[in-house]
Each structure stands twice: as structure tokens, then as C-alpha cells.
Design a protein around this nucleic acid. Structure first.
Lengths: 222, 222
DNA sequence: TTGCTTATCGACCGAATGGTCAATAACTGG
DNA sequence: CCAGTTATTGACCATTCGGTCGATAAGCAA
């Protein structure tokens, strides 16, 4: 009865309405969606919630994104990509002992993990949802995992070629993953347990640096 | 209108009904719920879905569990705990060089990750949902993280005390986390990318073994 | 001002979901 | 075989949520 067919009689009389260019509104929506996703997870996040955080009507989000899934992938893309460009720049610019470079890379990575807690939360979320969104899984494989592994591999190989590291390190297929994992896991731990309860970043950074440098050194002179 | 007060006229005439003791039914429900959660995530999983997988009416789940959250924590508990008892038994029973023990522990961990893919998926899920369920976070911290770190720390310390490893390894607060992370991350990668696309477990196991053994060895004789 | 484009709103819908509850059939002990 | 206990059912409810859509106002050009 009270579901009148088109009984929509009092529409569109909303309050102050500010019209923005898409270049201004999009970041607002992405930022709000990041908060919503980080706080409630993918399944728990609601379009209405993201809209409310952005101070915007729900319908507007559908004006910018086809649906929830696309909004999520857009948020992830906009957040995780810049991390790697930084590291790659460091590698390209470096010269000197490779041990120093490796040490500096490790420190940079841990530092970055400690900086923005929302990044960690989103990273964790990415892990959790990747298998339900093929596009997300591909994105992670290509833009995060492979990129990180390649970066590490190139440094280790160069160090081995320069006689600084053990020669067999260059052909060790799993080494890069083993070197990358502690930072990734530190991020996950931070995202899930919070900065206080997760293992200390400083301690992990120091331990990994020591372990790697002595573990990769040539067994030669005492 | 058509919501008759107690118009429920034809209830309870369902088909073949098998009555089981709770000790028989509970594992069925937990197993079915594991499948459902692993496949759809926490938010995406539905009580009806879990019930259907168990071949049971939805209401029965509420007979055994107060709600969705409790069902989830029960599933996680039942799944992750047995992993550690195995490792702890290994440590308790071992004697001989600590390098061998460490090697064996690493192999056991990677092996276990490779065995049941649902465990990896659930582990990934646990990471993702821990911060929305305090009970889950505590469970992880106490029953998984601390337990693993303690195990590793005890072995490393014993090895250092026996003069097998570098003396300073025993006091390295972050070392255990760095040693534990690759296995955990390997599990996460498997859970999110699948066995084929994730970094090879064998390669990671071999690389980590090499890295650790040479990284922990006393710098002494060439 | 007029009129066109388009960013923005918010009521609405259908579907799905978590959770409840009275009815009931399967066992149990006597 | 009967009565009491309890495991099990499935219809039902309230709510939430993703997504649609017509109305509308803000800006811009003429």
C-alpha cells in the first residue's frame, strides 16, 4: 500500500549543494572510501558509509564508479603504487658498496611501513580480498610482488657479480622472496595488531640487516 | 497485511531428519563453515550457506553458536592450533646440532603450508579480520605469534649457548620475527595467489635455510 | 536572461542476510 | 509403549545494502 509506484513527490530539495569538478571530487571520494574500507573491510564497508564520510549522497559514487568492486580497486591502486617508485629511484641513483644499498633499502621499507598505518591496513585488506577479485590479484602480482622481487634480485645479483656477496646468491630463486617477506609481514602485523602490539619495526629492521649482511657475505676470510 | 500473526500452518514437516550427538554434529558444522568462510570471506559468508554445506537447517547453527562471530572464532581456533603442537613436539624431542633442528623446523613449516590450502586461506582471513574481533586478535597474538616467536627464540638461544651460533643472536629481539615472517608470508601468498602463482615454497625453504645457517654461523674459521 | 550540460541528491526497490521461534521428530529411560 | 528431553527444522521478521532513477540545481556560454 504505502509503496506508491511513483509516489516520489518531494525529491531533490536537499540542502546546500556544492558543485565540484571531478578532479576535486574524486580524491575526496577515494579518501573517504579508503577510510571506510580500512575500518570495516570490503564486505563490511557500505557505499552509503563511504558517501557519508565524503559528505556526499550515495548516488554520486555511482556517478563516478560503476560499483563497489571498482571503487575498491581504485582505492587500492591509488594507495599502494607510490611506495615502489621511491625504492626504485634509490637503487638507480646509488653507487658504492652493495651492502650499503641493501641496508638502505631495508631501512627505507621498514620506515615506510611505520609511517602511515592506513597503508598497512589497506595492504592487509588487499591480501584478504585478492582471490575474490582477479583484477586485484593481478595488480598485486605485477605491481607489488614482481616489482619488489625484481628490485631485490637486481641488487643481489649486482652485488654478487661485484664479488661482494656469495656467488650462488645470484641464482637463488627463492632468496628475493625470503628477503621481502619480513617487511611485508611486518606491515601485516602492524595492520592487524596495531603499532604497539606488533613486533617492533626497529628490532626487525636491525635483525634483518644483520642476518642478511652476514648471510650473504662471502665465506672467505675470517 | 499478508503478514499473518501466527499463520505458520505447515511447519516442521521436513524430509529425512537424522539426529546426531553434538560431538558428531559440531565437526560437520565447523568443517562446512570453514569452507564457506574460506571461499567467501567473513563478510561474504552466510549462515545459510554454511548450513547448506553442512546439510543442515540454518537454525541449527544458532543452536550450537550464539552468532556469526562466535562461529568464525570457533572455526579459526579449531584450525590453526594443531600446527604448533607438532613443531613443539619436534623441538622437545630433538637432540644433536641445533642447525639441524632449525633446518628441520623450517622444512616442517613450509611443508605444512603446502599441505592444506584451506589453512592458508583461513590464515589469511584471520589476518584480515583480527582487528575487527578483539578476541581473534588476542588469540592470534597469544596462540600463534608469541608461540612461534618463543619457539624460535628458544632454539636460537640454545644454539648460541652451545657455541653453534653467533653469541649476539640470542639477544636479538627482532630475529625471531624475521625468521618467522617468510613462512607466514609464504602462507599468505599461497592463500591469495594460489599455489601456482605464489613464490615457490621449495625455493623459499631452500633459500631461507641457506641464509639462516650462514647468517647465524659464528664468524670464526674460514 | 535563457537554455544546455552535468554534477548532485535522495527516495525507492529487490534481494540477501542475521537472527528468532514455535512446531516437531528423533532418541532415552522407564 | 509412553513420556520427557533435545536435536532439528523452516517459515518468518527486521534490517541492511547495492544499485537505479527521475528530479534538480550549479555553472557556463550565448
Amino acid at each position: 500500500m504505502l509503496s506508491g509506484g511513483e509516489a516520489r513527490t518531494e525529491v531533490g530539495r536537499g540542502g546546500a549543494r556544492r558543485r565540484l569538478t571531478p578532479e576535486e571530487r574524486l580524491p575526496q571520494i577515494l579518501e573517504a572510501a579508503l577510510e571506510e574500507f580500512a575500518e570495516r573491510g570490503y564486505g563490511g564497508a557500505s557505499m552509503a558509509g563511504a558517501a557519508a564520510r565524503a559528505g556526499v549522497a550515495k548516488g554520486l559514487i555511482y556517478y563516478y564508479f560503476p560499483g563497489k568492486a571498482e571503487l575498491f580497486t581504485a582505492v587500492v591502486r591509488s594507495c599502494i603504487q607510490p611506495v615502489f617508485t621511491e625504492a626504485e629511484k634509490l637503487v638507480a641513483a646509488h653507487d658504492g658498496p652493495y651492502a650499503d644499498l641493501l641496508q638502505r633499502l631495508i631501512r627505507l621499507a621498514y620506515q615506510r611501513v611505520g609511517e602511515d598505518s592506513r597503508d598497512s591496513v589497506l595492504f592487509k585488506l588487499l591480501l584478504a580480498e585478492a582471490d575474490r577479485f582477479p583484477e586485484l590479484g593481478d595488480f598485486y602480482r605485477l605491481e607489488v610482488l614482481s616489482r619488489g622481487l625484481d628490485l631485490i634480485t637486481s641488487v643481489v645479483s649486482a652485488g654478487a657479480a661485484a664479488g661482494e656477496f656469495r656467488a650462488d646468491a645470484a641464482e637463488d630463486g627463492g632468496l628475493a622472496a625470503v628477503l621481502m617477506a619480513p617487511v611485508a609481514m611486518a606491515s601485516v602485523w602492524r595492520g592487524m595488531l596495531g603499532p604497539e602490539r606488533a613486533p617492533s619495526l626497529e628490532a626487525m629492521c636491525a635483525a634483518q640487516t644483520r642476518l642478511i649482511l652476514s648471510g650473504l657475505a662471502r665465506p672467505g676470510p675470517g
